[in-house]
């Protein structure tokens, strides 16, 4: 008799895990994007948001959340490599000499066939992202910030972000990766629902369209920020920060 944990090791189980962990990260990305937009509101708002997150649940909740995110991405990556590299070559040891795509309603395309590469690129970027933002204080000077009208001090994460986004190479890289991220989501979002068995004949096509929308919104949304900071650097680098036109 197959147990649930046993089932997770089956080919379908891999899909459940892939879809579930993917959706967790899509949820996180949406939250992250909303948070990012506080950058427009200025230094006080952004640092306040960071401070709020760090002190949720007596400062414990963030570790729980981070552990959960770390675990899910680990599963997502390990599974992805397993499915796209190991299982794939095992299931078709001799490939086709001529490659073609069927006409009509196939979802097979650049996005679906490069999930592993867009995924690994995003993973690499994620590491860079953590090093250059979250753990920036470990290797560079991060100024302190005192909230207005209080004695509460915190790290001025706002300044780290603005400084990074004033560097052209970084913004260029960020932009490229966000476009790949969009591609990953274009196949990944609807695919997650399909993998979890949540779609039927009527909902498949709308979900595929929705995935397009999500991928465009997230990818352009994330892009919007560094590009704006780069272009309007003076406004963002001012003491109050944020975008003043």
């Amino acid at each position: 008799m197959t147990t649930f944990t046993g089932a997770l090791r089956s080919s379908l189980g891999k899909k459940y895990l892939m879809g579930f962990t993917g959706l967790v990260w899509v949820g996180f990305a949406i939250g992250h994007l909303i948070g990012n937009f506080l950058l427009f509101a200025g230094r006080e708002a952004f640092n306040g948001y960071a401070y709020f997150l760090e002190h949720l649940g007596h400062g414990m909740l963030i570790y729980v959340a981070e552990a959960f995110l770390a675990l899910t991405i680990l599963i997502h990556v390990a599974n992805g490599i397993n499915v796209a590299v190991l299982d794939k070559s095992a299931a078709r040891p001799v490939g086709y000499q001529v490659k073609g795509n069927a006409r009509g309603r196939t979802q097979k395309g650049l996005a679906s066939q490069t999930m592993i590469w867009t995924g690994l690129t995003i993973l690499g970027f994620l590491v860079l992202h953590l090093v250059t933002f979250k753990f920036a204080y470990l290797w560079e000077q991060v100024p302190d910030y005192k909230f207005e009208g209080t004695n509460i001090m915190t790290r001025d994460l706002y300044s780290v972000v603005v400084r990074r986004f004033s560097e052209g190479w970084y913004v260029g890289l960020y932009t490229a990766v966000m476009l790949l991220f969009g591609m990953h989501l274009k196949h990944g979002v609807w695919s997650a629902f399909q993998s979890l068995g949540l779609l039927n004949k009527k909902t498949t096509a709308p979900m595929i369209s929705l995935a397009w929308v999500v991928s465009i919104v997230l990818s352009l949304g994330f892009l919007f920020l560094p590009v704006t900071v780069f272009v309007m650097n003076e406004s963002f680098a001012s003491p109050a920060g944020g975008l003043h036109l």
Binding site: S11, V83, L196
Partner: peptide, 28 residues
């Protein structure tokens, strides 16, 4: 020894009887 499905949907596109991937969702 069949592989894992990655929702490419190419199966549905080549299926001579046009059987949809909605059945795969049902199976899951």
């Amino acid at each position: 020894g069949f592989g894992d499905c990655s929702n490419h949907g190419e199966c549905e596109a080549v299926c001579p009887k046009e059987i949809g991937i909605n059945h795969i969702a049902q199976m899951r």
